[in-house]
Design a binder for these strands. Structure first.
Length: 792
RNA sequence: GCGGGCGUGGCGAAACUGGUCAAACGCGCCGGGUUUAGGUCCCGGUGGACUUCGGUCCUUGGAGGUUCGAGUCCUCUCGCCCGCACCA
């Protein structure tokens, strides 16, 4: 027996798998039956920072176990890999260190890919895609144009975070405590033109279809909350002098009789309409300008401010005029950008009313019944909601309405390293799409990636100035690029047909593979990537491009791997997998990361523990080699070791398949190996060894392949998953637990399948039981074949 | 403030639908063996208290409750973590 040499074994099998094309999977030929058992296993694609971190190792090892298990249980498994290779970090590295973002990105991809291969993950590398490659972003641009055609992509002015120092728009994530994360300057709110995807059109479907997918409840909750559907009513408040009806959204139409004032958001166009030409014009405008420039955080925390417009609107319920104010506690983005102020029943309105001495009129009493509300007095307020809306509806002053918190997705970035947005601005024609046959619009070279008020692409005049594709007149390209979340909203579709140069994918192929049977990734993407991708698929389904409405049928979130209490992530590598690979090899790392605990739970990384998995593999190595020297186990052997092996098959299979837990199968195999070590002479020794190696293969594929050969077999990676023999597990006798008053007093062996009264008789016959029931006549509770509880 | 999750040995954890002494498996620790020594490796022990060594009692953050029976279900409470947050 050679000593266990992780590196030699791992290199050998990685080479052999590559030569055999072991993990490549073919697409079905046209006309091939679609009823084959297929399985699409996908983990979220990595962002190519310098190297893998232990969180990746957990994520992809988890997916690898599922991949091997599904392959060996008879599925055609698609398990691809790619890189989310556009984005700010590479661009910032280029600004910081010099060099081109493409060089940095491609160097990182090469490095990560090498690490992935060393980990031995069963990936179909022939399907690899990277977002920054023109062969990929050509289709990202193509999809954008389809969204544009349907009005699902549009451009409009919207408030953004602006850093006055860096002269750029910042995403919300890059505003820390109201300051720019890079230079520390106080961020301003600005109104700028932005590109948006109309995800709000799909708010209801995104909410409703959560019921059709097998996702963690907490993730569904996060999305539900983010979509934020509220039912209520839209009520009309009239400005008589201007002959103007202003709608407001409210979830509390029952309180409308208590609306004593009216508030408009400072950003609202109504402000101008209301005050233009009045004596309060200057004062109100000044307030609106200052308030609109305040950050959302500032507006949320400071005391209530506002200014009276001097105008009045008519409360549609009371018919009385109430004053109209402008105040920054009302947000333009939600509802209609205007509210009715009901200080008696809303804390924020009360605070405002108290600050400005506005009247407070309660309209619901302590028992929840309507008061001071005309004909509705005495009605329970829940009932009054519908009744009042119906009453206002009859008079044309209101109707039931639904409002969402979800906003359209702003996806344009004033940055370099992203897919160019393929449109041209023409003075005559406006926004003109670049024709499909001119795609991709290649990302041009620029001299400086730093944004200086204008996106970096605008600095390349030769690229920027092109004739209008429609009229041929002077035009200017869009210089903004797309958010990387656009790239990652459809990459899983491209994997199905990665080399198609006539379309993003063939519908037949995505309909064959999709939806993804098991998706694995961090919960940090709960309301970003996981929502955007759902929106993309629904929109593409509506366009007839594919035949399903949800991308991810089943979702699992792996836990965080922490180092000294901190999450390991892209920015803080912490532990280098290369060093661990050099020191221990891939198999021990793979077992260790999954043995720590449930995969959805955070784990603390400790290099010490990994030694113990090396020890286990060495022990397995020795014990299996010893068993391999013994005669083959007879067919149907039913020794205790054989029974243990079958039990282990049943446990491991159930854990991976049904329970989706990955730590306890390792413990189960360890138990089997321990049992084998204790009884090496058992006739089932070889069978037990074969079973242990076969069951552990998804975790430690290299060493198991080597041991499988030592046992006289070949190609474990495509050997069918073992099945247990239920007949062997059916015991002839069982151990019956005897309790008196709920306490265990004895255990006796009885034939399996005895009727309840027989079990009770046997229990009463036990001396130890008799000593505790003391001659009394007990009541009996029986769990057949397991337990009898006698209660006296 | 709103929504959600989690508390089990010295440590990571197991106990899957309430039912075989709660703590499997592993780490750590203790004892023994192999070894010139250390490491590796092998064997055994290891929740707590009491014990006449046969056992007895206690123990899943805390307090109640349901049940023949609760780590598991319910109520309250303490602690930690996560998501949202002037959303009308």
């Amino acid at each position: 027996m050679e000593p266990y040499d992780a590196h030699a074994i791992e290199e050998k099998w990685q080479r052999l798998w590559a030569e055999a094309g072991a993990f490549a999977v073919a697409n079905p030929a046209p006309g091939e039956a679609g009823d084959e058992r297929r399985f699409y296993m996908l983990e979220m694609l990595p962002y190519p920072s310098g190297h893998l971190h232990m969180g990746h190792v957990l994520n992809y090892t988890l997916g690898d176990v599922v991949t091997h298990f599904r392959r060996r249980t008879g599925y055609r498994v698609l398990r691809p890999m790619g890189f989310d290779s556009f984005g700010l970090p590479a661009e910032n590295a280029a600004i910081r260190e010099g060099g081109h973002p493409r060089e940095i990105t491609e160097r990182n991809i090469a490095s990560i890919e090498r690490q992935m291969r060393r980990m031995g993950w069963a990936i179909d590398w022939a399907r690899e895609v990277s977002a920054h490659e023109p062969t990929y972003y050509r289709w990202t641009q193509w999809l954008f144009l389809r969204f544009l055609e349907r009005g699902l992509a549009y451009r409009k002015a919207a408030p953004v975070n602006w850093c006055p120092n860096d002269q750029t728009v910042l995403s919300n994530e890059h505003v820390v405590d109201g300051r720019c994360w890079r230079c520390g300057a106080v961020v301003e709110a600005r109104n700028m033109e932005q590109w948006f995807f109309k995800i709000t059109d799909y708010a209801d479907q995104l909410l409703a279809d959560l019921d059709t997918i097998d996702w963690p409840e907490r993730t569904k909750k996060i999305q539900t909350q983010h979509i934020g559907r509220s039912e209520g009513a839209e009520l009309l408040f009239r400005v008589e002098e201007l002959d103007l009806d202003i709608p407001v959204f409210t979830t509390r139409p029952d309180t409308v009789f208590g609306a004593t004032f009216f508030v408009v958001a400072p950003e609202s166009p109504l402000v101008e309409t209301l005050v233009a030409g009045t004596e309060r014009e200057a004062e109100v405008r000044a307030y609106a300008r200052v308030a609109a420039a305040r950050s959302t955080e500032e507006r949320a925390t400071r005391e209530k401010t506002g200014v009276d417009t001097g105008r009045a609107v008519v409360n549609p319920a009371t018919g009385e005029p109430i004053p109209v104010w402008v105040a920054d506690y009302v947000l333009m983005e939600y509802g209609t950008g205007a509210i009715m102020g009901v200080p008696a029943h809303d804390d924020r309105d009360l605070e405002f009313a108290q600050a400005f001495s506005l009247p407070v009129v309660p309209v619901i009493d302590d028992d929840g019944r309507m008061i001071s509300s005309a004909q509705f007095d005495g009605m329970p307020c829940e009932e009054a909601k519908g009744a009042i809306v119906a009453w206002l509806d009859e008079r044309g002053r209101g109707k039931p309405a639904v409002s969402y918190r979800l906003r359209d997705w702003s996806f344009s970035r004033q940055r370099y390293w992203g897919a160019p947005i393929p449109v041209v601005y023409c003075e005559q024609c406006g926004i003109v799409p670049v024709p499909d046959d001119e795609l991709p619009v290649l990302l041009p070279e620029v001299s400086d990636y730093r944004p200086k008020g204008e996106p970096p692409l605008a600095s390349n005049a030769e690229w920027l100035n092109v004739p209008c594709p429609r009229c041929g007149g002077p035009g200017r390209r869009e210089a903004e690029t797309m958010d990387t979340f656009v790239d990652s909203s459809w990459y899983f579709l491209r994997y199905c047909d990665p080399h198609d140069d006539t379309a993003p994918f063939e519908r037949r192929l995505v309909d064959y593979w999709m939806p993804i049977d098991q998706y694995i990734g961090g919960i940090d993407h709960a309301k970003g990537h996981l929502l955007y991708s759902r929106f993309f698929v629904k929109a593409m389904n509506d366009m007839g491009m594919l035949g399903f409405r949800e991308p991810f049928a089943r979702l699992f979130h792996q836990g965080w791997v922490r180092l000294a209490g901190k999450r390991m992530s892209k920015s803080q590598g912490g532990v280098s997998p290369d060093e661990l690979l050099d020191q221990f090899g891939a198999d021990p790392i793979r077992v260790y990361i999954l043995f720590q605990g449930p995969a959805d739970q955070d784990i603390d990384w400790s290099p010490d523990g990994i030694e113990s998995t090396v020890r286990f593999i060495r022990r397995l190595w020795r014990i299996v080699h010893e068993a391999a020297a013994r005669p083959a186990s007879p067919e149907g052997v039913s020794t205790p070791l054989a029974v243990k092996a079958h039990e282990t098959i049943a446990r491991v299979t159930d854990d991976i398949d049904r329970r989706f837990v990955f730590n306890t199968p390792i413990a189960a195999v360890m138990e089997l190996v321990n049992e084998l070590a204790r009884s090496p002479e058992d006739p089932a020794a070889r069978f037990a060894a074969e079973t242990a190696v076969s069951l552990l293969q998804p975790y430690t594929p290299h060493v198991c392949e080597e041991l499988w050969e030592a046992l006289g077999h070949s190609r474990l990676w495509e050997t069918p998953w073992p099945t247990h023999d239920p007949a062997l597990l059916a015991r002839e006798t069982v151990v019956l637990v005897l309790q008196v008053n709920g306490k265990v007093r004895d255990r006796i062996e009885v034939p399996a399948g005895l009727p309840e009264d027989e079990l009770v008789e046997r229990a009463k016959a036990s001396e130890k039981v008799q000593a505790h029931i003391d001659g009394k006549e007990p009541r009996a509770f029986v769990v057949p074949d397991k337990l009898v509880n006698l209660v006296v």
